[in-house]
Simulated assay, not measured.
Amino acid sequence: MIDGLESVMLYVDNQEQSVAFWTKDLGFVIKAEDFIFDDYKSVEVAPSLDSETSIVIFDKAFIREAGHEVNLETPSLMFRAGDLDALYADLNNKGIRCGDIVNTPDGRVFNFSDDEENYFAVKEVR
């Protein structure tokens, strides 16, 4: 039986830039950095150290070189936020590209992109 979701693997072209985006721009923390092979490493980030789920960032070059048969496309991630308007304003003030806030049957959402133009969504949770 599956008990939950541990982490999401995110494969990027520029790992250093991606880690900076998640930590400096979005305020995530680095939970772990593990050297895997030569100069390649994985970097685990999350909203806080005690977050149940994290994002593990890998360099696509390593994944290709290692011959792992995985999909290198960006996963579709939906985050949640209690104060969607404040988060939206904060990301816009930091120059992060954000879509409009839209109303859906499940609540208000907007999307944002990282420096590699991967898009992610945020849903308001009250």
Rank of each mutant, 00 (worst) to 15 (best):
I2A: 12
G4L: 07
L5I: 15
V8C: 07
M9P: 06
Q15T: 06
Q15W: 02
Q17P: 05
S18T: 06
S18R: 02
V19G: 01
F21Q: 01
D25G: 03
D25A: 09
G27M: 11
V29E: 03
I30R: 07
A32S: 15
A32N: 15
A32C: 13
E33I: 14
D34Q: 15
D34K: 15
F35M: 15
D39K: 09
D39W: 06
S42Q: 09
S42D: 10
V43Y: 02
V45P: 00
S48A: 11
L49Q: 13
D50S: 15
I55H: 01
I55P: 02
V56C: 06
D59L: 07
K60I: 07
A61W: 09
R64F: 12
R64M: 12
R64I: 14
H68W: 15
H68T: 15
H68P: 14
V70S: 12
L72T: 06
L72Q: 08
E73N: 10
T74G: 04
P75R: 06
L77E: 03
M78H: 07
M78V: 09
F79L: 04
R80G: 07
D83T: 03
D85G: 11
D85M: 12
D85Q: 14
A86S: 11
A89F: 09
L91V: 00
L91W: 01
I96H: 00
R97H: 09
I101A: 02
V102L: 04
V102M: 01
P105L: 04
G107T: 05
N111H: 03
F112V: 00
F112G: 00
E117V: 10
N118M: 08
A121C: 13
K123N: 07
K123Y: 06
E124Q: 02
